[in-house]
Design a protein around this nucleic acid. Structure first.
Lengths: 119, 119
DNA sequence: CTTATACTTCGCCAACTAACGAATTGAAGA
DNA sequence: TCTTCAATTCGTTAGTTGGCGAAGTATAAG
């Protein structure tokens, strides 16, 4: 019950759901997620921590950058949840909008992207 | 996205999940749910309202009593959610404890049960 | 070694949530 | 009609959540 509620709390915030949906296409550097959500880096980082603690995403550090992705083990309990989430939202217009925006964000060179939120 | 988050928020509270699990066995009068959860009637009523607005339960008034149950239409979108919830929690010890307690509560005559929380 | 960069953690605040008891509603029963 | 009673709504309070900017951390670049 405890872990179940932890999971449902993790997916009961629209921005966290947006992160999960974005990661369907593959792993993303935090700076691209920040650009997608248009939130402060600290806020995005907090969301990522909550998703990670619920076991819904995994993180990997490579040099200066931190990459997040969906669980690599397809037998992970988390995938039951993720499949349900993806199925529930497959026809969501918000998700489609994000897909379009994400496609553009992925094309931006990562060095240039990071400069954007340096301000 | 909006309705999805409404649903996930509804199932991200342990007491509301307990209500859903309890209703698997069939419809219940509010006073039995109060007895199961050991919460104030006003609190339970609020939880029931949240579940109802998320489409996860239905209510029916009969005389003095209000009965709640899971959606009668098995094709309801809510059942995708409910099946996932039930599957996720089928081996939860909290749920099993509630099943045992509920079996006893159902045997109590409804007139006598209501007197309990009149205090 | 020093500076810059890409996050993350901390501290704070406004908004929301779950809990309660008190007051209200609406259907039965006297 | 008047009262009783199951349940809901209202008002309040303590605790949680999501947001931000500032400070901290760890890696890369100079």
């Amino acid at each position: 019950m405890n872990t179940f509620v932890k999971t449902t709390k993790a997916i009961s915030d629209p921005n966290r759901v947006r992160i999960l949906m974005a990661l369907r296409a593959g792993e993303l550097c935090v700076c691209r997620i920040i650009e997608l959500l248009q939130l402060a880096p600290s806020t995005v980082s907090k969301h990522l921590t909550i998703l990670k603690q619920a076991g819904l995403i995994e993180g990997r550090k490579e040099g200066r950058w931190m990459y997040y992705c969906l669980p690599q083990d397809p037998n992970s309990r988390a995938w039951d949840t993720l499949h349900w989430v993806f199925q529930s939202l497959e026809s969501s217009s918000d998700v489609k909008d994000d897909e379009v925006r994400l496609a553009k964000i992925i094309k931006i060179d990562i060095e240039k992207l990071c400069e954007i939120y340096k301000k």
